[in-house]
Design a protein around this nucleic acid. Sequence first.
DNA 1: CCCTGATTCGC
DNA 2: GCGAATCAGG
Length: 109
Amino acid sequence: MGWDTKDVALLKRLWSAGQSAGQIAGRLGCSRNAVCGMLTRLGLKRGHKPPTARPKIRPPPKLRQASSAASARPAAKKVSRITAKRQQPKEFSKQQLYAILAEAVRNTG
DNA sequence: CCCTGATTCGC
DNA sequence: GCGAATCAGG
């Protein structure tokens, strides 16, 4: 997932527009985790829920993937909705992107 | 039950 | 720096 300037821009735009990480993730074609992580790295976030309780208590589930640092994977989403996954890469035309953006801003602005 | 958000971990 | 794994709350 090479985060291009446009990707980050779209991410920030949709995020600011009020879109959820899942939505942005879907539009960008990546997992919400990537989007959320990106937002965290960018220093965005909405600051809704404070670090309820996530110190660093991570059991020894070592060995996560065993290949690329951050890239491919069945992405079987451990948590919830383990029934079907997105197959189509979801291609959005510029017009379509502008459409969703318009809709997003329409909702927020 | 599902979705959503945030953090931490491994490369 | 990136994505995945994972918990926590609504």
